[in-house]
Computed example of a mutant assay.
Amino acid sequence: MARYTGANCKLCRRENMKLFLKGERCYKDKCAFERKEYAPGQHGKMHKKLSDYGVQLREKQKAKRIYGVLESQFRRYFEKASSVEGITGEILLQFLERRLDNVVYRAGFASSRKEARQMVKHEHFTVNGKKVSIPSFLVKSGMVVEVKEKSRNHARIIESLDTAVGRGIPEWITLDKQNFKAEINRLPERTDIAYDIQESLIVELYSK
């Protein structure tokens, strides 16, 4: 599947917020967003008033970039969320949070979602004891995500776990750091997602 291969820091500057796409670098002074808090490009410092459509589009782009999904996949999540009883925007975010690559990142096994996606593809993890190499796999309550035995000395996983507490582990995930396990104790709720995403605007955009 095609993926964005450009500069990650430009995405943060475009959305005017840290998306934490480069792992530990985002927490340091080297972060480009800290040094250039304006949009990239020749006219980045100009302040343009967005139309209602432009505001809605920016919210959608922000969510897509945070979770690292492309338009077609993001739209499928929206259509699936629309068919489920409940608040569509919150269900959409719940689907994105339940992705295996996001769980690997949120549990502290990787320092960014991009790194987590690569690790999942390289078969470093199991779910309920079974090998899963699909980043978009949706976890369910009660499932256990575990680092494979032969991958537990992986330098990036160890380094990420050492700084995981500082980044914060969400309440819906119980991390057993010593045994390289993360249990999904419940499905994520809207209050578990700290990102400044106005999901109602995304629903309005797709509902036109």
Rank of each mutant, 00 (worst) to 15 (best):
I202A: 01
K121G: 12
S72C: 00
K18I: 12
V139P: 00
E97F: 01
L138M: 09
V104Q: 05
K114Q: 12
K140M: 06
A2R: 14
T88A: 11
A110P: 02
R58F: 07
I169W: 03
R14I: 10
I66H: 01
E59G: 01
L19F: 07
E85H: 14
S83K: 12
F78R: 01
G41C: 06
A155Y: 11
S160K: 03
T174F: 10
Y67L: 07
I158G: 00
V103L: 03
R186S: 05
A7M: 11
K36H: 14
R14C: 08
G166N: 13
E183D: 02
A155R: 15
A81T: 12
A116Q: 00
V132R: 15
F125R: 02
Q73S: 07
V55I: 15
Q198C: 07
D101L: 08
L187S: 08
R25W: 10
E149A: 11
S141W: 00
K150A: 06
L92S: 01
V144A: 02
C31K: 11
N102I: 05
I193V: 11
A182G: 01
L70F: 08
G44D: 13
S207F: 05
A182E: 00
N16E: 15
A194N: 10
Q198M: 13
T191Y: 10
K18Q: 09
R152I: 01
H124V: 02
L100E: 03
L11H: 06
I202Y: 04
F180R: 02
K49F: 12
T191C: 08
G89I: 10
N185T: 15
E85W: 12
K64D: 02
K30L: 14
E15Y: 06
C26W: 07
V84G: 00
A81L: 12
S136V: 07
K18F: 06
F78K: 02
